[in-house]
Design a protein around this nucleic acid. Structure first.
Lengths: 143, 143
DNA sequence: CGTCGACTTGAAGTCCCCTTGAGGTCCCGC
DNA sequence: GCGGGACCTCAAGGGGACTTCAAGTCGACG
């Protein structure tokens, strides 16, 4: 079974057919057409869809995904080395995401201790709201 | 300095004034009006804004935030215990988020090893695309 | 008292990512 | 050959979270 209908691609990639058409309209996946004008997908498109969804979870927009996919060779099916190259770049992003959430969690823990959310300018430690004086984003969660 | 203008609230919370008006239109923050119809915010609104931003980072929608804020007592300024109660619930969500990203990272590592993104049904381990047979979301990143 | 930046409103616009609907065609099993 | 489910296109809708705009008004400082 060398080719997939849009329904099969949808089912096996876990995204809606409407989404696949949408992706295709944005050039993120490709298909050939049957004589009856129906889409047929190569197996390798499955990987593109998987890549797109994974990339979104890493925080890329579809434009960024398109940019990344544009660096794939055209004319041949991407090899594992190709996919490897693309997804390797995500590692630091994921690390960073985890770091940020952990930081938030930590701060939350610290702040739960005092019961407030004002962090740097916590009212318990900073009753006069001193941070206001030096105008630096007193309450901001991210510096 | 008991009250803040929208500009000050914006500056100190790190969000745009337009955002604050938007939040207010959704009932997420409150203000009184001067005789000249300008908004004036109590200091405690700063915490509400901080809460909103933090909640968003935890993955809540504004509707969920509103729901959470609705459980605050009306008639009095929320105490630390009130904020504590609200934000305590985030801890597991954050843990879960971290877990999910770590899982993605792991899978990515594993998959980088083989150069593909098809995970459970990686073509190298599953050349006949066996997963297709038992129709369970062969390529899905999240089961 | 004047100036000028900060403030007001409501509607509309934007960005991202899709989903839905209408109206029609294809194709596969019976 | 036919019925019905899967497919087609294109336009519009939706939701979440804001931002921008126009046409003013307010208010603190000099």
């Amino acid at each position: 079974m060398p080719e997939l209908t849009i329904g099969h691609l949808a089912e096996r990639s876990g995204v809606a057919t409407s989404t696949i058409r949408f992706y295709e309209s944005r050039g993120l996946v490709h298909s050939r057409r049957t004589t009856g004008n129906q889409r047929r997908y190569e197996q390798s498109e499955l990987r593109r869809v998987a890549f797109i969804r994974a990339a979104q979870r890493v925080g890329l927009t579809l434009d960024e995904v398109a940019e990344a996919l544009a660096t794939l060779p055209d004319g041949r099916t991407p090899t594992k080395a190709d996919w490897h190259r693309l997804s390797r770049a995500w590692r630091p992003r994921l690390d960073e995401q985890i770091r940020r959430i952990e930081l938030l969690r930590e701060r939350l823990d610290g702040c739960i201790g005092c019961g407030c959310l004002s962090l740097r300018s916590c009212a318990l430690y900073n009753p006069g709201d001193e941070a206001a004086e030096h105008g630096t984003g007193a309450v901001r969660l991210e510096p």
